[in-house]
Each structure stands twice: as structure tokens, then as C-alpha cells.
């Protein structure tokens, strides 16, 4: 190739590269001028066949041309990269492509959230039967034979001595019979009460029972575990109030109120202007329960607590009719 030819090549390359509009065009020109099959490459490859004096001159020319083209290529690359790109705009406001998901029932969610908190505190999960012997539901839990809770007006009977459990506390008895302390268990489940269905009451409902038996378990431990739970579940600012109460299977017994998280204790309709919401019952497990399961009440002490799942969910989500939980209207279910 002559020097003129190289000059023509350079002129052509300069013009083409100046008018490049895309990176693809630049790349095509790179292949054309500097690629393996390009004229320049051919010249450089053919150098060794030239005379020594000519060789130097041609080599210099060719290398100079190569450098120029490389420079123009770099400039063209920069230019197309900087040029405003012609793009088809995407409507980013269209919804994403997905199959609509369903939701967990609010009862499941509430139970799961509460169980998770206690699980983190070292409580095991246990379950028990819903159709239960009267003995486990009442007798072993220190309900005297004539206790009003045993009335047909309060409890569903399916046989003389078989009931639909009225609380999750029989799980205590069943677990105590199975193992020796330390026992630390959380037991959620479905319970029943012979009660007309209304906005405030349903014949089926969920409870969650917790209990811990070991050497030297005290009322202070009970206060601690429930305070820790309430502050995790309802918020770190929540205050607790333990009031003396009565349950046959605990002594001393307490009702636990939390400061109303809806009005921060100032008083509102939900807390009936008291600033407090009753959330659970608890106490130290009665020595008679230990006696029924063969634990030595002198060696071991323990606490137990129980809460109503629907009540907690209703407070937390401001639901005013318990029947909504069992009606399963998808317009309700989809809200949580």
C-alpha cells in the first residue's frame, strides 16, 4: 500500500468515525480499519517481506495511521456514549407481573406472632385434644365438683364425663403427667363455650396458655415474663398492671391489664375511659394441681397464664364483632 492509499484510508476513516451514531457502528469501523482482516493489519504483517530501508518508513506510516485511527475510535466511542439515547420509555406505573397472593387468617397470624415471642424466651410448643375428659378440663385443675363452670349452661358435653375443652389449661395437666420439671410450655388451641353467638361472644374461640414449673419459680418471674411479652407484642412503652383475681387452678391469681395502646392511657372508648385494657389471667399454679399430677409442691413452684386470641386481635385491630373471624368473608380476610 502506498502512502497515498494510506492517506485516503485515513481520510475515509476520519469522516466515517466522525459521523458515527452508535456504539455498534464504531465497533464495525474498528473491525474494518484495525481488525485482523483490515488493510493496515495486512501492511504490518507484510513488513518483513519489504526491504530494510522501505520497511522502516512503511512501518512508521502504518503505525502513525493506526494511532490516529485508534484516537478517532476512542473519540467516537466517547461521543456516542455521551449522546442522548433514543429509548422507548417504559410505563413504570403499570403494576408488576405477579399472581395475586392470599393471606393468613388473622387468628393464625396472632397466634404465630405470640408463639414466636415465647419461643424466643425458651418456651416449647405443646398441643392437646379439643374433646377432653372432664377430669382434665376441671377436676385436675382444682374445680370443685359443684363449680358453676361445669354447668351445662357454660360447657358443651358430649358424654357424662367428656366435654369440649373450655380452656387450654388441660394441656398443663397432660404435659405435667408426661414429664418432670423444668417444664416451660406455650400451648395455643381452640376452645369452646356454651354461649349464644353475638358480637361479643362465639361458641368457639382460641386461647393460648403458658406455664413454667421449676425449682424456685416465683410471682416475680411471672411478672417478668408477661412484662417482656407485652412490651414485645404491644410496644416497648406499654405498662402492665397486675390485679388480684381468682381462678381455681392458680393461687395467688391475677388479671393483667396493659396501659391502653390506643390512647396511651389517657382514656378512650375502647378502654372504657379507664386507660387500661384487660388482656390475660395468670397466677402461681395451685398446689392442688401439682398434687393431681404427682409433683411435689414443696420442691417445685410454677406459674401459668392464659389469654384469648380473638380479644387480643380485636383490640389490636379495632374489630368490634367477633363473628367476623368465623364468617370468613374474603373482604375481611384480605384486610390483615
Amino acid at each position: 500500500m502506498s502512502q497515498d492509499e494510506i492517506a485516503d484510508l485515513l481520510a475515509e476513516a476520519e469522516e466515517l468515525l466522525e459521523n458515527c451514531a452508535s456504539a455498534e457502528e464504531v465497533e464495525a469501523l474498528r473491525v474494518k480499519y484495525l481488525g485482523r482482516k483490515s488493510a493496515l493489519t495486512a501492511i504490518l504483517r507484510g513488513l518483513k517481506e519489504l526491504d530494510a530501508d522501505k520497511r522502516v518508513e512503511v512501518a512508521r506510516e502504518a503505525n502513525l495511521a493506526k494511532k490516529k485511527i485508534e484516537k478517532w475510535l476512542a473519540e467516537a466511542k466517547q461521543k456516542v456514549a455521551a449522546a442522548p439515547r433514543q429509548v422507548t420509555r417504559i410505563d413504570h406505573t403499570l403494576p408488576g407481573k405477579r399472581y395475586p397472593t392470599g393471606k393468613l387468617h388473622l387468628i393464625t397470624r396472632t397466634v404465630d406472632d405470640i408463639v414466636d415471642i415465647f419461643y424466643g424466651m425458651g418456651f416449647e410448643v405443646a398441643l392437646g385434644p379439643e374433646v377432653e375428659e372432664e377430669y382434665y378440663n376441671f377436676g385436675a385443675l382444682n374445680f370443685p365438683p359443684d363449680h358453676p363452670a361445669r354447668d351445662m349452661q357454660d360447657t358443651f358435653y358430649v358424654a357424662d364425663d367428656v366435654v369440649l375443652r373450655t380452656h387450654t389449661s388441660p394441656i398443663q395437666v397432660r404435659e405435667f403427667q408426661k414429664r418432670k420439671p423444668p417444664v416451660r410450655i406455650i400451648a395455643p388451641g381452640r376452645t369452646y363455650r356454651q354461649e349464644a353467638i353475638s358480637a361479643r361472644a362465639y361458641c368457639v374461640f382460641y386461647q393460648l396458655e403458658g406455664f413454667y414449673v421449676d425449682h424456685r419459680v416465683t410471682f416475680a418471674d411471672l411478672k417478668g415474663v408477661l412484662t417482656a411479652f407485652a412490651q414485645q407484642y404491644f410496644g416497648a412503652d406499654v405498662k402492665l398492671r397486675f390485679r388480684p383475681s381468682f381462678f381455681p387452678f392458680t393461687e395467688p391469681s391475677a388479671e393483667v391489664d396493659i396501659s391502653c395502646f390506643l390512647c396511651q392511657g389517657r382514656g378512650c372508648r375502647i378502654c372504657k375511659h379507664t386507660g387500661w385494657l384487660e388482656i390475660l389471667g395468670c397466677g402461681m399454679i395451685h398446689p392442688n394441681v401439682f398434687e393431681a399430677v404427682g409433683y411435689d409442691a414443696e420442691e417445685y413452684t410454677g406459674y401459668a397464664f392464659g389469654m384469648g386470641i380473638e380479644r387480643i386481635a380485636m383490640l389490636k385491630h379495632k374489630i368490634d364483632d367477633i363473628r367476623l373471624f368465623y364468617e370468613n368473608d374474603i373482604r375481611f380476610l384480605s384486610q390483615f
Binding site: 387468617h105 358443651f156 370468613n328
Partner: peptide, 8 residues
């Protein structure tokens, strides 16, 4: 959607 219904 999960539902929870009466066992009775």
C-alpha cells in the same frame, strides 16, 4: 386465603 370455621 386462609379461613377458620366452626368445628361444630
Amino acid at each position: 386465603y386462609e379461613v377458620v370455621t366452626n368445628t361444630i
